[in-house]
Design a protein around this nucleic acid. Sequence first.
DNA 1: AATGAAATCAACCGCTTTATA
DNA 2: TTATAAAGCGGTTGATTTCAT
Length: 227
Amino acid sequence: MCTLPHGGENSDKDQAVEESGFKKGPWTREEDEVLASYVSIHGVGNWNIVQKNTGLARCGKSCRLRWTNHLRPDLKRGAFSDEEQRKVIELHASLGSKWAKMAQELPGRTDNEIKNFWNTRLKKRRRLGLPVYPDDIKPMLNDSEAFPLPELIFDDCNFDLERETLCMPSTSFGPENSIFEQQISDNPIMHHPKPISIVPENSIFEQQISDNPIMHHPKPISIVPEN
DNA sequence: AATGAAATCAACCGCTTTATA
DNA sequence: TTATAAAGCGGTTGATTTCAT
């Protein structure tokens, strides 16, 4: 593990290299290029030897995270579509805070993205006193599992996904969830889509692919497990 | 235009799970 | 079977950006 002592950072964060020899903080374009090139040749995994083989001053954990969240060629980027938002809500209702599992159902999205999206949304809606779920989605988990913080939640409100507005509050919610189970079987959105490969416009990867011949990936990477 | 608040995003930390010798 | 390393995961933080006043 690349755990580092607290409070030991240099003032120049970008250039800071800790006692352990590993650098922290934002990745530079050059570091991204080194890591992406390495992965294109050797594939993913064995993150701890990346540093040894490339000279990157990053621990394996940091390399894995950077690849997973930013350099993977199949990442979507950009705002979540209405459909994706809806799916995140549905998945959260059924899984709770299982971000990695949720990411498996949303091709091109990372667990970190989904987590950030959800936390932002949750915070906003709590502040506005709006229900976390639209009225047609009931959480399968009990309140404390779905929402660790104590919270007054209105339910059975008509929720406009686009405008995020509360239309008509009525009753409180309970743990019953038969409606949701029905939705999973009825709703085509809930069936796993096929993995797609997208290279985001203006991404580092796009540029590398066009600039660098070794960036033509020998191994397609799927983030969605085969069913 | 300046400023503070809110939102967003990237990255780290620490714990858990899985793989391997 | 056990110990260790590696990988995975969720929570959290802090920097930056955007928005409102």
